[in-house]
């Protein structure tokens, strides 16, 4: 018999004796037996209107030390990314092809390493910034939701020292349940092999519990939304 069958056999044997559901004192059925109930009712509150949600995202991003920049037009976004380039003296950036990146990146006038086709990771490591799109912005937590399909692979959003996210205003969703619903709706038949919830720039507290940004991932996270 294979180990798989051994383990499953032992599990079935063990489960012949039932265990009590915690917190119900021996009565009733677990509520989660119903897949329809959503955890939204317990999670932190998110405002109903778009403006409230946008304000909440901005507040969370600030707390996380992410740089959230909101613009009215693609032109303003282009100016913003150009000023980042000048300020940080970018020589080379990583990126991928997409509606937003194609509209914004050419203005940088810099060599662009495309990670949505075969590329060399050493070259990406030498890039000053990684510029990607995303699947959604989550107001409740200040999170950027990316997949390797929407954001130029697995490494672009984590290897260069600065991750710049380009997003449209209508990509803002209210909360985590909404983000998972969006993933299901968009990818249920064929999920990307990596889905990542990015909440602020990389950090660590492993030395005397003091927070330091840029442990192994990006030291900076800039979200340009227009």
């Amino acid at each position: 018999m294979s180990e798989r069958e051994n383990i499953l056999g032992r599990i079935r044997e063990a489960l012949k004796v039932g265990a009590l559901v915690p917190g119900l004192h021996g009565h009733g059925q677990p509520a989660s037996a119903s897949p329809l109930s959503s955890p939204r009712q317990w999670l932190p509150k998110v405002g109903d209107s778009f403006d409230e949600q946008l304000a909440l995202f901005a507040k969370n991003a600030a707390e996380l030390k992410a740089d959230f920049q909101l613009f009215k037009s693609a032109d303003e976004a282009r100016q913003a990314i150009n000023s980042l380039r000048d300020k940080e003296k970018w020589q080379r950036v990583g990126g991928h092809s997409g509606d937003l990146t194609d509209a914004i990146c050419p203005t940088l006038n810099l060599p662009l390493l495309r990670t949505d086709r075969p590329y060399d990771v050493h070259e990406l490591e030498a890039c000053d910034a990684g510029i990607s799109e995303c699947d959604a912005l989550i107001a409740q937590t200040g999170t950027v939701l990316v997949t390797n399909r929407s954001a130029g692979g697995r490494a672009l959003s984590v290897l260069p020292p600065h991750h710049v996210v380009l997003a449209r205003r209508d990509q803002l969703v209210a909360d985590l349940p909404a983000a998972f619903a969006l993933l299901q709706q968009r990818y249920a038949t064929n999920y990307p092999s990596m889905i990542s919830f990015i909440t602020g720039p990389s950090r660590t507290g492993d030395i005397e519990r003091i927070m330091v940004l840029g442990a192994h991932g990006p030291k900076k996270l800039t979200i340009i939304c227009f």
Binding site: P44, N60, T115, D116, R117, P118, Y119, V121, T141, G142, T143, N148, R149, G152, G153, R154, A155, V158, Y191, P192, S193, M194, I195, S196, F197, I198, T199, G200, P201, S202, R203, G205, G217
Partner: peptide, 24 residues
Amino acid sequence: GTGQQLTCYNTLYSGPRQPGETDG
């Protein structure tokens, strides 16, 4: 765990590099 609302990276993996993917 740490008193954060979410940790920085929460990542789901569902396979090795799939056809059409460029890294992983």
